[in-house]
Design a protein around this nucleic acid. Sequence first.
RNA 1: GCCGAAGUGGCGGAAUUGGUAGACGCAGUGGACUCAAAAUCCACCGAAGUUCGCUUCGUAAGGGUUCAAGUCCCUUCUUCGGUACCA
Length: 856
Amino acid sequence: MIYDFKSIEKKWKDKIQLEKPFAFKKELKRDKYYCLEMYPYPSGNLHMGHIRNYSIGDVTARYKKLQGFNVLHPIGWDAFGLPAENAAIQNKVPPAKWTFENIANMRRELKDFAFSYDYENEVCTADPSYYQWGQWFFLKMNERGLVYKKKATVNWDPIDKTVLAREQVHEGRAWRSGAVVEKRQIEQWYIKITDYAEELLSGLDKLVDWPERVKTMQRNWIGKSEGAIVNFKFGDDDFPIFTTRTDTIFAATFMAIAFDHQDLESYVEKGNNELLDKVRKFREKCQKINQDSEYEKEGLFLNSYITSPVNQKKIPLYVTNFVLAEYGTGCVMGCPAHDERDLKFAQKYSLPVTIAVKNAEEPTQNQSVAQSVAQSVAYKGDGILVNSGPYNGLNNQVAKKKIIEDLVEKKLARKVVNYKLKDWLISRQRYWGNPIPMLRDASGKYYPESFANLPVSLPQDVEFSGFGNPLETSKSFREVLVKSEAGQEKKLLRETDTMDTFTCSSWYFLRYVDVNNQVSPFDKKLVDHYLPVNHYVGGIEHACMHLLYARFFHKVVRDMGLVNSDEPFTKLTTQGMVVSQSYFSPSLGKYFHLSELGDDRKTCPVTKTPLVIKKEKMSKSKRNGVELKEMLDKYGADSIRLFILFAAPVEKDLEWNEKGIEGCSRFILKVIKWFTKITQEATSSVEANDDDEIKRLSFLINQTIYKVDKDIKRLRFNTAISHMMTFINEVNHLHFSSVGGIKEAQKALRQFLILLSPFAPFISEELFEFFNSNGFVAEQKWPEHQGEWLKADKVDLVVQINGKLRAKVTLPIDQDEEVVFQLAKSEKNVVKHLGDKTIVKKIYVPNKLINLVVKK
RNA sequence: GCCGAAGUGGCGGAAUUGGUAGACGCAGUGGACUCAAAAUCCACCGAAGUUCGCUUCGUAAGGGUUCAAGUCCCUUCUUCGGUACCA
């Protein structure tokens, strides 16, 4: 038998299409397993990153199915978003047409790999039957007071002409278009994710099956800090500041206010117009600063003073370019001795440096702190309070609490918790998204659309000129006539902002359990049975956006009483990227494809200057990708799946290596060779004695079942495959000639094919047909290892002297220490090393090793 | 800076609670088969030495704990990822 993967894969693709072995059956009785991979954006074609993501998920889904679980393993389409609209502008293709054609194409590509999805249970976010429920959730959130509109300085992408979320801006540039981001003031819709900040943070502790780094990233993103708002005084008025270090309050030698603080001008010395003018110029200058790059800390003395609540000291007030208006109160106290950045500022403007906490290890003098401060290093450690009036001598952590308590008692402070997390800006000035179901009257007042009118569908009569929001060009969409209670017709304007696509991906995993529901987003009973998702697989790049929004949405939906669970995803796996060598010519500023280079891969073929060779994520722009179609034609889906799972552990980056796929093809050939040998070529002779071979085979197959099962459970697919390779290598050396031997071999083959099927489904199906001509290997029962076969009757035992390997002896298992010791002592090499030394100690690890500790 | 992850042959990577370092695969070397090549099969494949039995060294670097350390502890270095004026 030759490996004709093309016809094998065609045959089984058709059979899967026809007989639907992976159809999702809603069942509340059987144990469920919900395995989910992050759904793709329908950009046009699948790439290797997708194949890796879905291969990882598919192994788990198929494994659980074989174990008898009712598996929910769905796929869908994150179908809204900018590229569709850009295509509409460039090619005059409607976004819907572009999107749905891409989906059809990518679905076809997915089928080439036999991922165990039910394509009749898809979610497509651009389908009104889905997005109406997104609008429904928006209105429900609005009812719960979680939605509001406010004017805000937003990041404006001048190329895509849209507002960007903070996380969509990287180093001052838009994440998609790469344009330099501008600041603009626009009315925007927000969702109050900050109401859930505390639970989003504390809930992380319960997610024991999430990678530590993802949890850390979310913790930092939420950025909780506990402190106090302390009321300093500006004349008779309050001047509140936020601090987490009340223990350093006596060390405050300047006060700082943000340049964009709304009350800034009221703190400038009264009547000093010259200064006011300077302040305004300073503010203008600050506004031009790119907040993402590093810049010098600067300030301007406002000729006014703030009074400290602890010692009534007058402290000079500065406007600065480094205090953030949106965090805390927009005003802080400057304690140069204990804060790096305050120290820099103080030194620049020759402000005094007072020490409030000294190093506890040097109680008699202040040397260490004073010296380090003199060397421009602020002291941020713990210690004993000095220069702090009644609190002198206290440990600073104690003093911190005491000072707050005292201030709170005098009504001069209150304890507060601050978060870095900002409310979720969901407005997008775009057409291809979920319309926000709100209406506005002439006075600017907003009314929610009524539930009965959902969905608010996207109109067809729009123009894609490339500027502004196309929805504004649709009269049928914009103008709405509603009847008031008095029966009068009233003209309202429909909101033209659409929602951020992250709103769609925040609950798609809930919809999968009930995709055809027309009366509610999903049935509660079904959702409570199938949720939470047991295993979620996707890219690390979603650690702080999608995964946080989805957790938030789930909690809101829970509070609406629609789902019982607190968290949507029990176990999370973040797979590494697929990387490959890229060749960049710095002199030309462009990438070269490998095929464009000659034998000399280190030099630019045009300018003859050295190329920069790096391992980077496969992408079109870096010209280091591979064509999926080409790989499929050359090697078939099974070899690609095997390679992608074999070449690296799932969480690490995977380096593309075509030779590696060939290795996996060779493995499949060896499987076929063994199959052929024991199903076709075997000539039976009843007299033959295969006892030793049968014993060896039983040991090998049971060991392989044991190891593969364990490695799938701990998500080590690379080693699971290596164990199957070892099995095939060994078993190809066994020869059976008796009827009983061949029967045993076929039994082992049958079990082996089930083990192989989650990794290489096509060839497994094809060969398994020998045992089961109508069904699928995917629907068999996962084999269990027989423990008694795992114990070999002989073991290789290691003999060490002082921890160094000196001999190996083969012994029956479970020998007494004394027997092993006597045998070990008589080994030639052991005798040599023992010489006339005395044995002072023996360490015996049964069936593993004996270590003799010797002395002269 | 801070937080997180990781450093093992020529390469991708194994080594589950400390117990034979380098499984499996790629590349390479030698041989068989062949008119020849490809494919396949067999053998070798960390370094140095060797009387071919073995010996010494070797998991980023340096120390430590232990009968025994890639694995545990301390210090340092490097790489990658996240984040950055959050008071």
